[in-house]
Computed example of a mutant assay.
Amino acid sequence: MLNTIIVDDEEFARSSLYFLLQENCPDVHITGIAKSVAEARNLLTQNDIDLIFLDIAMPGENGFELIPQAQLNHAQVIFTTAYDQYALKAIKANALDYLLKPIDIEELITAVEKAAKLISLSKQENNRNESLQNLASSLAERTEIRKISLPNGQGYKLISVDDIIHIEADSNYSIFYLSNQETITVSKVLKEYEEILPDHQFVRIHKSSIVNLNYLKEYNSRNGTEVVLKNGEKIAVSRRRASDFAEKVRSYTNNSDK
């Protein structure tokens, strides 16, 4: 049996993965479930853990920050992530794996089988530290995402970042406005998406707004600085962000002309 923990800040993600493992991976024993890296550290301290299903994007500490503890415990890591990133290839290059949400059953089974083989090998050799260090280094240099999975209460909606026109904050929620005129509301704050979306393409122009420069039609300062998007939407640019926004537009325009 593989003593396993699930680490994810989203309740739906935790419960759905737990169910999938119970139904399809009989060699996996769920030792504990954590909502944060801090809770996961406690589980690793108190238990002999073989395998960690680890979300990457979590408030506070992200999944990468658990890797040193995983090293100490000689635990294998399968990343679970809503973000399709090129650098995730680095995980496979280091003989680990990742699962893109929503999790596919066949991919889950394959990942667990791979992890079981690696765990058996690591127990014999006890030399996975170097691979984990390479993984952490590779992921620290991860490139920009091109797809994103948005939790919608019943599951996930996978979209291309190029289809996002702008994102609006609504208290602790973020509302995505898409090129097909669809809107999606997710229970995550705007700052989380500001940090992971390509910063040369997406700009925070106000405390409550991020815009995709691909959809910028014009901007002016007639009534205070505002942008006009290709869908006709007009959005104010805050005074303290105006200079950074103008610089991002210049850089974006110069790169587009090349």
Rank of each mutant, 00 (worst) to 15 (best):
I91N: 06
L96F: 09
V77K: 01
I109V: 10
T80F: 03
T81N: 00
I91S: 08
D97G: 14
T81Q: 00
Q76D: 09
D104N: 07
Q69N: 05
A70R: 01
K101W: 05
Q85T: 14
D104G: 09
T110C: 10
T80P: 01
I105S: 05
L100C: 05
L99W: 01
A70I: 07
D84V: 10
I105C: 06
Q85H: 13
Y83D: 14
K92C: 15
A87H: 14
Q85Y: 13
Q76V: 12
K101L: 10
I105G: 06
Y98R: 07
D104Y: 07
Y83T: 15
V77I: 14
P102R: 04
I78T: 02
A75K: 02
L100Y: 07
P68H: 03
N73Y: 05
L100P: 02
L99Q: 01
P68S: 02
F79S: 01
Y86Q: 11
A87P: 12
Q76A: 13
N73E: 06
L72M: 09
N94A: 10
Y98N: 07
L96C: 07
T81S: 02
H74I: 15
Q71C: 07
T110L: 03
A90I: 15
F79V: 04
A87C: 14
A93G: 11
I103R: 01
L108R: 00
E106D: 13
A75Q: 02
I91L: 05
A93F: 10
V77P: 07
F79I: 04
T80D: 03
D97F: 08
E107R: 00
K89R: 10
D104F: 09
A87S: 15
I109F: 01
K101D: 03
A87N: 14
Y86M: 13
Y83H: 14
D84A: 13
A95P: 05
L72N: 08
N94Y: 11
A70G: 09
N94M: 12
L72Y: 11
Q76G: 06
D104R: 01
K101E: 02
P102L: 06
K89I: 12
L96N: 07
A82I: 06
L108G: 02
T110W: 00
D104L: 04
E106P: 12
A111K: 02
Q71H: 05
A87T: 15
A70W: 10
D104K: 02
K101R: 09
D84S: 10
T81D: 00
D104V: 11
Q69I: 06
H74Y: 11
L99G: 03
D97E: 05
Q71I: 12
L72V: 11
K101M: 10
Q71Y: 04
Y98F: 13
I103P: 01
T80L: 07
I91C: 05
A95L: 13
L99N: 02
Q71S: 03
P102C: 08
T110Y: 01
L99R: 00
K101Y: 08
L88R: 10
T110S: 07
K101P: 08
A93Q: 08
A95Y: 15
L88H: 12
L108D: 04
P68G: 03
P68F: 04
I103N: 03
L88S: 15
A95I: 14
F79T: 01
K92G: 13
Y83F: 15
A87W: 09
D97W: 03
L88F: 10
A75S: 12
D84I: 07
I103A: 11
A95W: 13
Q85V: 13
I78F: 00
E106F: 04
N73H: 06
A70F: 11
A111I: 06
Y98G: 13
